[in-house]
Computed example of a mutant assay.
Amino acid sequence: MSGLNHVTPGGPPVTTRLSETVTMIKLSVGPMDNNAYLLRGPGGSVLIDAANDADRLLELIGDQAPDTIVTTHRHGDHWQALADVAEATRSQLVCGRPDQDAIATGAWVEELTGVWDGDTVALGEESLAVIGLVGHTPGSIALAYRGPGGVDHLFTGDSLFPGGPGKTGSPADFASLMDDLETKIFGAYDDATEVHPGHGDDTTLGTERPHLGEWRARGW
């Protein structure tokens, strides 16, 4: 059974209104079923993870080039189309500061801006808050959209999925990611908050919160 905002590889995008002013278009791209998110707000737009299928992303973008393309972390399946889309759109490129060099080298892009906790990414007249989540990679980031008077939205890359945190390479990385998720995500946002991950269906913090102890206990 399909979950929240379900998209399929090669299939059509799903369009959802996040607030009275911001629309999210979600598209599955590439062989690893990566989610790319195009957020359109008043006076601007942001693309989250130019992961693959540059031609499909550019068709989705159309004549309104995003002001910014955000890459959530350094893993190659999240930036396969970054160079091509960046060349076509001339958008500003943003990623987590600790992953900046790895993404610039891997994706062959220049003028990549590193961000971290406390920074924001403009979404036209509104903004997305940057949240650093160390563990899946050293520089993974989530983006938070707090719509006026509405439900909050978190774009978590591969740091949080329905059913648990993203993959980590050591017990220390797992502990770091869980600490950050518990303090910066579950400790800062309410149960109605929607989570938009780097792969698969969306979820809510209320759905996932009861399982935090289980995740700690199983170690992944």
Rank of each mutant, 00 (worst) to 15 (best):
G147Y: 06
L112C: 09
L128C: 09
E110F: 15
P165G: 03
G96T: 04
D117P: 04
S140H: 09
H136P: 01
F161Y: 07
A107I: 12
V115A: 07
H136R: 01
G150V: 12
S127P: 09
S140W: 04
D101L: 13
V121T: 13
R97F: 03
V151Y: 11
A102C: 03
G139D: 07
P171I: 01
A142S: 13
C95A: 14
T105V: 04
E110C: 14
L128V: 10
G124D: 01
P138N: 05
E125C: 06
L123S: 11
R146Y: 10
A102P: 03
V130Y: 00
D152W: 12
G124N: 01
W108I: 06
G169D: 01
S91R: 10
F155D: 11
G163L: 02
S127T: 12
D101S: 13
G114A: 06
E125M: 08
Q92S: 15
G163D: 01
T105I: 04
P165F: 02
P148W: 08
G124Y: 00
E125L: 09
K167E: 06
D158A: 14
D158G: 15
R90T: 12
R97P: 01
W116H: 05
D158T: 12
P171K: 00
V134Y: 02
V134C: 04
E125R: 08
P98R: 00
P162C: 12
G135P: 01
D152G: 14
T105H: 03
G114Y: 07
H153I: 07
E111D: 14
G150R: 13
G150M: 10
I103F: 09
Q92W: 10
V109N: 02
C95K: 10
S140P: 08
P165Q: 02
V121W: 11
T120R: 15
G166N: 07
P98S: 00
G135Y: 01
E111C: 14
V130C: 02
G124T: 00
T156W: 07
E126T: 15
P171W: 00
S127C: 12
G118T: 04
V151K: 13
A144W: 14
R90S: 14
